[in-house]
């Protein structure tokens, strides 16, 4: 067995090797780009001259063609891509991660297959049965088999009610089954108390989203249904501490404007925020006892907590700042 020092030295040495290799690759790419750029410039000049001499028939770029066909593009997560104009962001279908030495998150999330679509786990409720949560549980849809695990193949995902959880699946009252379904169980704990567990599963993949209202309006329907608002310091959230605080210092008009801004804001791909930016977590408690959990990032960016870390609504700062500043100023960030 290795001592602490031996393992620490090995780790440091492997990190340094990796960094040296990466620097070497970057240099090679830089050189190749410089060489290719020279060639490309020459080719582009040639094409420009040729086009000026030709009849211009096709003015579409590749991206324009995609838009005309109604298709969208999916980003390479390694680089920032800003979707211009009215292009929607596309959230690809959930796939079982491929085995890869470089895969930092060879992960599996809670999911269930319903009507050929994959619904992934979002908000859950667990606690003593007070009767209110039960009202959300709608029509019985089927029994999830719980047979998907890290070793499952892509074919397993094609099976109806294949899932990582086992249990009864229901619709959710007030929500479309195209977006949200749930798993629900009632049971006695070891002390004999009646407990309930309700897990929402939402279809947040294989979809296109252009404006915030497509998620927060059409699907989550938050407008006019917010019964209270709480926030949590980002640090507490990151440390898993459930320290919620009521949002104060925000007028009803400002809150309404925030919701309007969320609806009209545009979805963008963002892969990397500066570490200097402030974050906070906002919890919109709705009148049906559900919660919409949002991450707010300085500059007007909002992410629905259960959406991948790539898809943000960019709000107008006029609508965003009163709520964001109230969270930040109250917690002294």
């Amino acid at each position: 067995m290795k001592s602490y020092d031996e393992m620490a030295n090995n780790v440091l040495s492997r990190i340094r090797e990796y960094e040296t290799e990466q620097n070497h690759k970057k240099k090679l790419i830089k050189r190749a780009v410089i060489s290719l750029s020279s060639v490309c410039i020459a080719v582009l000049i040639g094409i420009a001259i040729w086009n000026n001499l030709s009849i211009q028939v096709n003015t579409y770029s590749e991206n324009d063609k995609n838009i005309a066909n109604g298709s969208t593009y999916s980003p390479d997560e390694s680089e920032y891509i800003s979707n211009q104009g009215d292009n929607p962001v596309f959230i690809p279908k959930v796939k079982l991660p491929e085995t890869s030495n470089n895969d930092i998150v060879a992960d599996i999330i809670g999911l269930v297959v319903y009507k050929g679509n994959i619904y992934t786990q979002t908000e859950y409720y667990y606690g003593e049965d007070d009767g209110r949560i039960k009202e959300l549980v709608g029509e019985y849809l089927g029994y999830a088999t719980g047979k998907i695990n890290e070793w499952s193949s892509q074919d397993d995902y094609a099976k109806e009610f294949a899932s990582t959880y086992e249990g009864n699946v229901y619709s959710v009252n007030g929500y479309s089954t195209d977006f949200r379904i749930c798993m629900y169980e009632k049971f006695k704990d070891e002390d004999g108390n009646t407990m309930i567990w309700l897990q929402f599963m939402e279809k947040l993949n294989d979809i296109e989203l252009t404006y915030g209202n497509e998620l927060f309006g059409d699907r989550l329907q938050i407008k006019g249904r917010i019964s209270s608002v709480q926030y949590q310091e980002y640090y507490d959230w990151n440390e898993g501490k459930d320290k919620f605080q009521h949002l104060s210092g925000v007028t009803q008009d400002e809150l309404n404007a925030f919701v309007e801004g969320l609806y009209s804001g545009k979805f963008e791909y963002v892969t990397d925020f500066s570490s200097e930016l402030k974050h906070t977590m906002l919890y919109l408690r709705l009148d049906d006892y559900t919660t919409v959990e949002l991450e707010l990032i300085e500059g007007g960016y909002v992410r629905y907590q259960y959406m991948g870390e790539l898809y943000y609504v960019k709000m107008s700062e006029d609508a965003f700042n009163p709520v964001f500043n109230a969270c930040i100023n109250n917690n002294g960030n």
Binding site: M1, I15, Y18, I104, N238, G240
Partner: peptide
């Protein structure tokens, strides 16, 4: 033991951010 070392190396090379709620 090798896998534990690989885990630490992943932290050091990929430098992921802890965006989970946990510790």
């Amino acid at each position: 033991e090798d896998l534990a070392e690989d885990t630490f190396v992943k932290l050091g090379t990929k430098k992921p951010q802890n965006k989970s709620k946990g510790s």
